[in-house]
Design a protein around this nucleic acid. Structure first.
Lengths: 161, 161
DNA sequence: GGTAAAATCACCCAAAAGTATGACTAAAAA
DNA sequence: TTTTTAGTCATACTTTTGGGTGATTTTACC
């Protein structure tokens, strides 16, 4: 029961603790700074900045998956509507046939634009290792050895524009 | 409507509540540790909350337009590729303009087929170092950093099919 | 509730790619 | 004839990429 709750809201707890630590640090800072009345503005400005960053980070962490799934679907739908419906119908069937997931397709698309793994990682808010895993799986599924081959083959198979 | 928002931003709300609880805990801690100015703490807590919210709002506002921009770009590329397969004349003038030599173009073309530098070297009966030199110069002339970028740009410029 | 697939991340190692510099040769341009 | 340019190659170094393995966490589905 309790352990279930702990694992379920582990992130909340972690965030809570880091917040607590942050607040405690600020408290300590305040003790040092309160002596100078003029430092208060700086202190509050720093808090505003830190918490704005925290908010941005939180929002990105939370909305990231939903938003990106939407991207892919919209692209597929729009390209379907825009031109040749038969060519890009093979698209999806090939994807399922090869077993390429949405996330992998996303990575593949970014790869084709010339981004490095590191840049893709930054763009998708995940670690470099994760992107490496995705690329490796894509190579395996496409039966290629390098990213350049993957791009070439994916274009030939109409997986990517 | 409201229930939809509740489910959509469930996490945000949960984090918000945990934040509030933490602030309360901090307040209590403070009472136990040091006698201090209460009003200031609350004031700062309020600022933290407000700016966290601001950060979340900012991030949401900023990430959504970006997504739409990406979609538009992809559609444009798609329609361009579909409508203009006949243009293949600017090719040479661009090459001379960029100062890309015959050999470099050759390497670039093989690169675009997914070959490694070593494979290109074998195919052209030259050493690996020579290919590296060529690729480096091509990257410099195309103003890119990686071969994937070079391929993407070269295709966009109609240098290679 | 349990299971399976998808997604995330880490660590290590090896190979490939890329950077920088310098040198040599042959052919073309001045 | 001298100079320039394209092409060739090397050495040393850094960065990126890719392979292999294993682990945890989400998500989806039954």
């Amino acid at each position: 029961m309790i352990s279930g709750l702990l694992t379920k809201y582990k992130h909340v707890i972690i965030y809570g603790f880091s917040l607590a630590i942050l607040l405690f640090l600020m408290h300590w800072l305040q003790l040092r700074l309160i002596v100078f009345n003029h430092a208060l503005e700086i202190y509050i400005g720093a808090i505003a900045l830190i918490f704005t960053a925290l908010g941005i980070w939180l929002a990105l962490k939370l909305t990231k998956p939903k938003v990106q799934v939407q991207i892919i679907e919209q692209i597929i739908e729009k390209t379907n509507a825009a031109e040749a419906p038969e060519i890009f119908k093979a698209n999806e069937s090939i994807l399922t046939e090869l077993g390429i997931s949405k996330r992998e397709l996303e990575v593949l698309q970014l790869m084709a634009t010339g981004l490095s793994n590191q840049e893709i990682a930054l763009k998708l808010f995940v670690s470099l290792n994760t992107i490496k895993t995705h690329t490796s799986k894509v190579f395996e599924k496409l039966d290629v050895k390098r990213r350049t081959q993957a791009i070439e083959k994916a274009k030939r198979l109409n997986i990517i524009p």
